[in-house]
Simulated scan of single mutants.
Amino acid sequence: MSEPFNDIRQVEMAIKAAQRMVGQATMSMDEDQLKAATDCLNQAKQQYADALSHATGISDEFFEFSSELIERLDHQLTEAKE
């Protein structure tokens, strides 16, 4: 029973870390920070995908909210790189 909770918690933490890094990178527009933020976001995407594939009894709302957040961060990074 603790396993789904741990997956959710890891996804939440990964997305929060990506949010911070994307925010800092897009404010500074530093190339190295943008790359680090991209890597961090990719890790969050992977953890999200892993949790989604193993999900049982986890609220669809969690995955929907997380997916929207990841999309927004991805868009923010893409805009900053252009």
Results as ranks from 00 to 15, higher is better:
M1W: 03
S2Q: 10
E3C: 01
F5Q: 10
F5P: 00
F5S: 11
F5D: 09
N6H: 08
N6I: 15
N6E: 12
D7N: 14
I8F: 01
I8A: 15
R9A: 09
R9G: 02
R9K: 12
Q10F: 06
Q10M: 12
V11A: 13
V11I: 11
E12V: 14
E12H: 04
E12S: 15
M13K: 12
M13L: 14
M13N: 13
M13Y: 04
A14N: 10
A14R: 08
A14P: 10
A14V: 06
A14H: 07
I15G: 11
I15P: 09
A17N: 10
A18L: 05
Q19A: 05
R20K: 11
M21T: 09
M21S: 13
M21P: 00
Q24K: 10
Q24N: 11
Q24W: 00
Q24Y: 02
A25K: 02
T26V: 15
T26P: 00
M27V: 12
M27I: 05
S28H: 02
S28I: 06
M29V: 07
M29P: 03
M29C: 03
M29L: 13
M29S: 12
D30Q: 03
D30G: 08
D30F: 00
D30C: 08
D30L: 01
E31W: 01
E31Q: 13
E31Y: 04
E31S: 06
D32K: 11
Q33W: 02
Q33G: 00
Q33Y: 04
Q33D: 10
L34D: 09
L34V: 06
L34A: 09
A36K: 06
A37C: 07
A37F: 05
A37K: 02
A37S: 08
T38C: 01
T38Q: 13
T38D: 14
C40E: 14
C40D: 06
L41R: 12
L41M: 07
N42Y: 00
N42G: 13
Q43C: 04
Q43H: 04
A44I: 09
A44D: 04
A44P: 06
A44T: 09
K45P: 03
Q46D: 08
Q46H: 05
Q46P: 00
Q47L: 15
Q47V: 06
Y48R: 04
A49D: 11
A49M: 10
D50Q: 11
D50T: 13
L52M: 11
L52K: 13
L52C: 05
S53P: 00
S53Q: 13
S53L: 06
A55Y: 01
A55F: 05
T56L: 04
T56G: 02
G57C: 05
G57M: 03
I58K: 04
I58A: 06
S59F: 00
D60L: 08
E61V: 11
E61I: 10
F62T: 07
F63A: 07
F63Q: 05
E64W: 02
E64I: 12
F65R: 14
F65W: 00
F65N: 15
F65T: 15
S66G: 12
S66A: 15
S67Q: 13
E68I: 05
L69W: 01
L69I: 06
L69S: 13
I70V: 08
I70M: 01
I70W: 02
R72I: 03
R72V: 03
L73S: 07
Q76R: 15
Q76A: 12
Q76D: 07
Q76H: 08
L77K: 02
L77I: 07
T78P: 01
E79T: 10
A80W: 01
E82I: 07
E82W: 01
E82D: 07
